[in-house]
Amino acid sequence: MTAEIPDVKKTWPHSINTVTIGATATEGGTRTSTITVGGETTLPFYHFEGTMPNKPVLAMEVWDVPAEDWPEPVKKPFADVMSDPGTWAKRCVEEHGAELICLRLKGCDPNGADRTPQEAAEAAKKVLDAVGVPLIIWGCGNVDKDNEVFPVVGDAVSGENCLLGTISEDNYKTLTALGTAYKHKLIAASPVDINLAKQVNILAMDVGFPPENILIYPSTGALGYGIEYVYTIMERLRIAGLKGDKVVAMPMLCDIGIEAWGVKEAKAPESEVPGWGDVNERGPMWEAATAYVYLLAGADILIMRHPDAVRITKNTIARLMGGGA
């Protein structure tokens, strides 16, 4: 007797929003390509059940100042270009196939180089001049400083349809106003908290920012460091979105590189942890494995650092999308 396998296919009543980043000349920008994410009608890679019209994409991370505190294995591939964000971005795109550049304005941090909004805007212009892919611009994390920097930067990159981040429950008014004025998309951040993830979207919508222009950043934990909590949140957000909760039906973004390269397993040299293997292989693998988990959780954009991790993850995406080797 053969057991009958039940048909478990499900039809979801709604789909995830589609968000396009970047603008070509005909769209009022200067990008040579744009990126569209979202539009899923099913859970990640359930090709038997629904469609994923847009594959997940990889952004590579570039700083406005040299990333002195990056661990050696991930600093090495960029050490000679870190003094110039444009050259750095060019290497990411031309040599490593970055589909977007994430410019992190670390240099603006008042506890660091404390660079001015004008300097940040110059860094953004350099990246735009150097590469044709769309741009993510991520603030330094100091709320007051970001609120000074973004009005200048948002204006400088006006028309380019950038993705700016992040807004949070306590700080969303400046960026939502800028996003509306200069037509940029926004990243809505919450600290591993599904209720806040929803709340920040509602707040942005209430000041008139369209939910179709928001990506959710649910926070990211490296493999071994709370990844399962974020996974669960992303899965639940995605299911709610597919069921019709418009307030959470957004594509999701994960900040992989910064988290993966912050943990001992990725960055400790073998001399410190004998038996763990060569850090030059271990580190990128840790980043790639972290990325893999977030792809399965529903990430639409991954921000990454190491060229090997990017290459592995691109291959993973191609295979999960049903092609590739």
């Binding site: 599904i194 209720n195 929803k198 509602i202 919508m205 209430d206 639940r236 909760d245 418009k246 307030v247």
Partner: peptide
């Protein structure tokens, strides 16, 4: 049946396509 948020009544309206 719905994810909690402090503004959940607003979320209820938004889900139904209602303006504030």
């Amino acid at each position: 049946q719905e994810i909690y948020s402090d503004s959940y009544e607003r979320a209820f309206q938004a889900r139904r396509g209602l303006r504030r």
